[in-house]
Amino acid sequence: MNRRYDAVIFDLDGTLLDTLADLTNAANAAAGRYGFGSYTLDEICGFVGNGIRKLIERMLPDGLDNPHFDEVYTFFCEYYGKHCMDETEPYPGVMSLLDYLHKEGYQVAIVSNKADFAVKKLRDVYFGDLVAAAIGEREGCRRKPFPDAVWQALEELQVERERAVYVGDSDVDFMTAQNAGMDGILVSWGFRSREFLLSHGGRPDQIVANVNELKKILE
């Protein structure tokens, strides 16, 4: 059977891994260290998606102008680096999907706005050789929705963008696929609801509610 794609590039947080509890714990540890209030899971869920610096900016009063911004950012990174696997786990069905893709010869990568060190650490621990490339936010590479990291992943996988699809859970991921000139699939089991995705440009036929629906598109 001829398949549509040779490579699948995934977002990480909210797509492959449920990282929200550990992100919230790190945010509250950093905020508490410098005398700021605590945040709920839902509040942090609304802040994530554009990298750690943007998360801290959204958390703190006055954002980037807060005099403790750099200290909170540094504390968050150090704390999260030590505790990023305390409660994090793959979403239901993700491991079986990745195993299927690996056995069927698909090339698989992760492209995330999470810090590069954390993306690679989580890939190594949770997915190992099921994911060939893992790219996170770092200096010299514009973060999503710019397509730079996606194009780098395609180069590492040696796959043309016409033969690849980007899978994510947010409007940022939707724009990333568009900017990269690739097909995109949005999952509604992560940090953004189906209603949110539809209201931010997602089409009904490109939004999936579970791993089985995603697998049918990829087969």
Results as ranks from 00 to 15, higher is better:
W189V: 03
L60P: 00
A109W: 02
M59K: 04
N113T: 14
G128P: 05
F146M: 11
I56L: 04
P204F: 03
D183S: 11
E104K: 07
C45F: 07
K216N: 08
V187I: 07
A153P: 07
Y73W: 13
D173I: 15
I217A: 01
E78L: 12
K121F: 01
A177Q: 11
Y34E: 10
F76C: 15
V165M: 10
I135H: 12
Y79C: 11
G35Q: 14
N2Y: 10
L98H: 06
C77F: 06
F146P: 02
N113W: 07
H200E: 09
E219Q: 12
Y39D: 06
I207A: 02
Q107L: 00
A115G: 00
T19Y: 06
G32Y: 04
D116K: 04
I217N: 08
G93C: 08
A149I: 00
L12Y: 08
G181F: 08
E71G: 11
T19D: 01
L20R: 03
Y126P: 02
V94P: 04
D169Q: 13
K54F: 04
D124E: 12
E213L: 11
D11L: 11
R123S: 01
L214E: 05
A118R: 00
D62C: 15
E104A: 00
V159C: 03
S38N: 05
S170G: 10
N50Y: 05
D70S: 10
F75A: 09
L97Q: 05
M175A: 07
S170A: 15
V172L: 13
A132L: 03
L197W: 03
N50M: 06
Y79A: 13
G136A: 05
D173H: 13
A31I: 02
D173S: 01
V72K: 08
Y106A: 01
N113C: 08
F191T: 06
A7V: 05
F191G: 08
D22I: 04
L64P: 03
V159H: 03
E195L: 10
D129N: 11
V172K: 12
P90Q: 09
T176N: 12
